[in-house]
């Protein structure tokens, strides 16, 4: 009997392995090897061309004194702390609005998703133009509303809000996932709540919010990871000419990944860049785990 169980278990393991094998191969080639390589590089002085030279924890120690490193880290934390809740709120409100049956709904949804299809290289230039204080549309609109018109990309105080604006523009992917989640809330629950005399707001908080909370958790994790790694939007907004790596006035738009990129491909400090990547990886891991641990308090688990 025991022997049979063993055999069954082994067969199950083999099956599991067989089904998971594409990703196992992919992981081994495209992840495990590069990660091991970068772990080794992070302990070396490496310029991409000559053999790495072992320096122990030197790169990690250098981070402690590198003012630009800290600047890029605080910028990234700012973007994450402000961007994740804003993106979540915006995509949820958007999904609630788009969930409402209106004629032309499929088209409206497509239009909200559209920004994610626009190639990032072009959208970077497009937004630079929209934010131009002289012939940009945004300041023109603010002028019409008699609101102050910031200099956006030329003002250290407005660089990060500008980056947020552009990242929030592509919140359509999250909206689509929320839309799907809303569709999945059983209508009987609303009916029951309505019969209990719950108003619309109460229904949202007592039915919708708990029912979609697993999806919300998914979104929080995915968007936190995305913000901690944010690169393309600030990189293109700060870039004034092709191939120049700029970071906005007073490095106000320098994200962690941008500084990592600069070290790797402009200064050719691959070792330092690898060490930075490892720190980012560990920070992301810690943040994700703490979100998951906290999630039990607010995520409603429907299956149990």
């Amino acid at each position: 009997m025991v022997k049979r169980q063993h055999a069954v278990r082994r067969r199950q393991s083999l099956r599991g392995l067989a089904f998971a094998s594409p990703y196992l191969v992919g992981f081994a080639i495209f992840i495990a090897w590069p990660v091991a390589a970068s772990a080794w590089y992070s302990l070396t002085d490496f310029n991409l061309f000559q053999p790495p030279h072992f320096v122990g924890l030197g790169n990690y120690r250098h981070m402690l004194h590198d003012k630009v490193f800290w600047k890029s880290l605080t910028n990234t934390v700012y973007l994450t702390v402000v961007g994740v809740p804003l993106g979540l709120a915006l995509s949820l409100i958007g999904a609630l609005i788009l969930n409402h049956p209106v004629r032309g709904q499929p088209l409206y949804r497509a239009l909200v998703y559209l920004p994610t299809i626009v190639p990032v290289v072009v959208s970077g230039y497009l937004w630079r133009w929209l934010m131009n204080p002289q012939y940009g549309y945004i300041d023109e609109l603010l002028r019409l509303l008699h609101l102050p018109q910031p200099l956006w990309l030329d003002d250290p105080a407005w660089g990060k809000p500008a980056v947020l604006l552009v990242t929030l523009w592509t919140v359509g992917g999250m909206t689509v996932i929320f839309l799907a989640a809303l569709r999945n809330v059983p209508k009987e629950l609303y009916e029951a709540a309505a019969m209990d005399g719950a108003g619309p707001i109460a229904r949202f908080w007592h039915v919708t919010w708990p029912m979609i909370s697993p999806v919300t958790l998914f979104q929080v994790i995915v968007s936190t990871i995305a913000y901690l790694q944010v690169f393309t939007q600030p990189y293109l907004l700060a870039q004034t000419r092709l191939n120049t790596s700029s970071a906005g006035p007073e490095n106000s738009m320098l994200s962690y990944s941008m500084y990592l990129f600069q070290n790797a491909f402009v200064y050719l400090k691959m070792g330092y860049a690898s060490a930075m990547a490892w720190v980012l990886f560990l920070v992301t891991m810690a943040v994700t785990v703490s979100i998951l641990l906290n999630a039990k308090r607010w995520v409603h688990d429907g299956s149990r």
Binding site: N132, Q134, Y135, L151, W152, D154, D155
Partner: peptide, 11 residues
Amino acid sequence: VAKFTAGWGQY
């Protein structure tokens, strides 16, 4: 100066 510079057209 920054405001004026920001309004410059493409080089």
